[in-house]
Design a protein around this nucleic acid. Structure first.
Lengths: 212, 212, 212, 212
DNA sequence: AATGAATGAGTCTTCATTCAT
DNA sequence: GATGAATGAAGACTCATTCAT
């Protein structure tokens, strides 16, 4: 589990040597490939070999960077969750006006609908966690961190919205999450029933309704 | 692929003999077991052996009744979809009053939330269809039938509802489906975040909102 | 871990059906193959596939009868240990005369030298136990039983022998064991240095010396 | 295959430069690590990486000094055999009195019992040679040299001993070897059965008996 | 010379499916 | 129809070895 920080910029350590650079590049390629393959095939059906090949490497490269398929899955989740949090933070940074923030959030929310991979990943993760948490306590910590990220933690202070009078902030977030994942899945499953425009349209309406 | 129809009721054939009855019993036990196991473990991770054992039989009984794991999965989907359609039909049979029908539908909808297995099954099916439709054309027909069932086809004439002025009937059905599956999953995944009461509560509110 | 008892002879249960018979046959073939392969290649280098092939089966048959290579190894040890104890018991059954018993034991001991596989198996087992006992406590019970068998437990009452005045019975048994295994290995390793006759000759002399 | 000879002492070559010294140090560290790891885990289960790590280096250092795991194993055998021969030679150098030589040899023999690693190494080597000599003719020469060393070649002229009247010198050496290796293994395998004192005690008695 | 990332052959193990009974 | 032994394809993982640095 890594958070990539440019330590050089902080003057803390020497520049990474060629080896480390190569490792990091490979790792990122594997994570990129994993995102595509996990989103496409699901956790269970994804084969290490496919992920490695998708990254342009052999199985060995995978095992040099991760211990198990599960490890990669969790690392990917953390990476993507961090990335999304970062993006949302960047989008609303410095905006104090509530209305303006809401507009940015709406943009971010609707934009997420385009990112089919993220939606599929969170869905896979919940199914995975649901089915494996019983078995292994060791996932608890990782789960907790990812769960936090998934909750769109930053989307706070929505609670004076229309439904906010009756619904708790948590409920709004749950509903927004569920609608995003569900509609993206529905769109993937049956594009005729839920075309891309309809997807965005519905998400927009529901966002407005829940945050109005 | 089987559709279970009571041919006797239709006067088409003679009553089944003991042998056929025994077969049918085994088949039903296998379907019941499959519902539990698929909902619990997901399609990929479900093992034929587990399903057979859950039904109190050996693998051989499975292969005497179904050809492949996929066959069982689709047969189960058809069975459950038929069952649900039947239940909904029974619930609203003979009720002409729109308000009354809506109350019954609401009851049925909220009652579905208790049936975690059905929600998980539809989720699994969509994921399965999404991932295999590309590969195999032979699933198309089966998919179509099941898809129809899943759409809660009978929940018609909702289109003069609040959102109906703006949302198409189809959209309402999609949203209701998505919310049901999504919230049931969320409840399973993190019962503290979405307790059972909250689950029913949210579904009720959203139903009212979408059909008001 | 099985002890094969003919329960039918005891009137306890019905004759095994065809399935059970087939299983038992396969199991015995696998154990026979395992004896040859483990003795030839050692535990580490023995491949499940080779053992299965040697038994005239596929890997699947192996996994239908044993859980892991280790399981097979331990089952084999127990089987062989039981067999040897039985043979020795049979050889000295009903013989009260100490001299006569000793002669029979000597015969049995020298005969063991021909059974290269048994010597190699005990050697492999000791190496295995030495290297894995630290890691897994679960082997303890199996080890204990096998250890007992390996100690030629029945070779008792040797303690009034020549060295017996000075050496404990246990020491005599240890020495006999060690000499058997060691000389068989030496004979296998370098047949020119220790030809078959020399092997028997040395074992006989040492037996006489230690039990005189 | 290397034999380490101090060529400088023989005036043959110039002193090694820094580079060469560094290499030699690494090589010796690897050999030391290999002794520990091979003795502990056995040849098959020993991993190059573990040996390198035990030596405080990476796998690269190993491959800079040896070609294969087998090469290292044989080099180690040769080194240790040479070392032992040297030690024995040193111990009996200049001693003409047969009785005195025997005492020194006895000391050396009993001292070997403390060196568990040497006993395990010779055992591993015999098993290895036994299992691979069939396959590869290229090992023959190396085997021959090591075999010679293992035979305690220097322990000559024992043949007027007690058993010597009947046993050939070769047989005595074989028995001493076998007893040493076998009892050390037994001691490692089951320290309660053969405690350290008993180990030395038995070896001493057998030495006396065979060389008396 | 040494590092360590990457390779890929080798092996264990699982499990859908077949088949003799 | 049902059993369960056996098959064998598939896939995760290990590790000796190679190679760019």
């Amino acid at each position: 589990m890594y958070i990539i920080v440019d330590m050089r910029a902080q003057g803390a350590i020497a520049a990474p040597n060629k080896h480390q650079q190569r490792t990091e590049v490979t790792r990122q390629k594997l994570l990129g490939a994993a995102l595509r393959v996990f989103a496409r095939d699901g956790f269970e059906a994804s084969r290490i070999e496919d992920i490695a090949a998708e990254a342009g490497h052999s199985r060995g490269a995978f095992y040099a960077n991760f211990n198990t398929k599960e490890d990669l899955f969790l690392a990917l989740l953390e990476q993507q969750a961090s990335k999304r949090i970062g993006e949302l933070q960047a989008a609303i940074a410095g905006i104090d006006n509530r209305k303006q923030r809401l507009i940015k959030m709406r943009q971010f929310y609707l934009g997420s609908a385009t990112n089919r991979q993220w939606a599929m990943l969170t869905l896979e993760f919940k199914l995975y966690a649901l089915r494996h948490s019983r078995k292994r306590a060791r996932l608890a910590a990782a789960h907790q961190r990812i769960r936090e990220s998934l909750h769109l933690e930053l989307m706070s202070h929505l609670n004076d919205s229309y439904l906010g009078r009756e619904l708790k902030e948590n409920a709004i977030k749950v509903l927004l999450e569920v609608l995003l994942t569900g509609l993206v899945l529905e769109h993937s499953y049956d594009p005729k029933r839920v075309p891309a425009e309809e997807l965005t349209n519905l998400l927009g309406r529901m966002f407005d309704f829940l945050t109005e």
